[in-house]
Nucleic acid binder design. Structure first.
Ligand SMILES: [Mn+2]
Ligand SMILES: [Mn+2]
Ligand SMILES: [Zn+2]
Ligand SMILES: [Zn+2]
Lengths: 141, 141
DNA sequence: TAAAAAAATTGGACGCTGTCTAATATTGAG
DNA sequence: CTCAATATTAGACAGCGTCCAATTTTTTTA
């Protein structure tokens, strides 16, 4: 319930065992202040808006570090790019196949029943539910 | 309940408004005879096993044509490649994140309840449910 | 069947996402 | 401040998928 500032982003990073460098703070701030699902290239564009200071390598290094430390998660829904999601609570997604926009569905009251037993010798790592939607077709009169 | 042959593949293609060329028949046969989830490069390898006769461009042209005519569907689960699925009945997937293998879950008795209303002005195009699994960790004694 | 038109295939160039590497720069512990 | 550890960087590289113009195959027409 607290506004995100670069200062408290640094604290969040430290809490996840991540050294808060300039670049890492900017990348985290881009994701958390917007609370949107962004691709790596969108993040790089945002972070370098004012003046270029973060390389492509660092953007990917950082996003992968954030994933590993479970500060963010990835959403795989577009065959050509990964989206990074600052929301790590259990939740699912609407995906607008035309605009490419992702919207959260809180997992709260959503239940999935009738699942078959897991194949032997495997454990669940996660459940991804994606509702693909498209804008209502406007009917020619 | 009928075995797939190259001959009846040609009929299937025609029924979907697709001109059954040699290459298209081979690609369809690779998918339907195996009933597996294959990536484009796996399909190309299968089709060119005996002697090379199908180019990368044709593999992609053909898969995209099949998708468009709804002869197959795609499964987006791995950020680095698309899987093509000869099963077009409504169904979902187990995805083994270690081996990369996909397994079908029949949609039959699976229900999803508690979904919020769709955002205004959009219609559902499909629901993808992916259960990510990994092999049971073998405990060191 | 022969000729012409239409449709499909092809190799290779290309674009984009993401990774890697070795050099450089920053950080922070002492 | 020193210096070792950590992080960043440019740019090369790799893989997936698309595009293009030239060629080949298929279908239509006569
Ligand atoms: Mn990734
Ligand atoms: Mn595709
Ligand atoms: Zn989300
Ligand atoms: Zn399937």
């Amino acid at each position: 319930m607290e506004a995100y500032t670069r200062d408290n982003m640094a604290d969040v990073l430290r809490k996840h065992g991540i050294n808060p460098t300039h670049q890492r703070i900017e990348i985290a701030f881009a994701l958390f202040s917007r609370q949107e699902h962004l691709s790596a290239d969108q993040i790089m564009a945002i972070v370098n808006l004012r003046h270029s200071e973060t390389s492509k390598a660092t953007v990917y290094n950082t996003l992968n570090l954030f994933l590993q430390r479970k500060l963010i998660r990835e959403v795989i829904v577009d065959p050509s790019k990964v989206f990074y999601d600052p929301n790590t609570r259990p939740h699912h997604h609407f995906y607008d196949v035309v605009s490419g926009r992702l919207t959260d569905i809180e997992a709260g009251d959503l239940t999935l029943s009738g699942l078959p037993d897991l194949p032997d010798g495997v454990v669940t790592e996660g459940v991804d539910i994606i509702i693909r939607v498209r804008p209502q077709q406007t009917q020619p009169a």
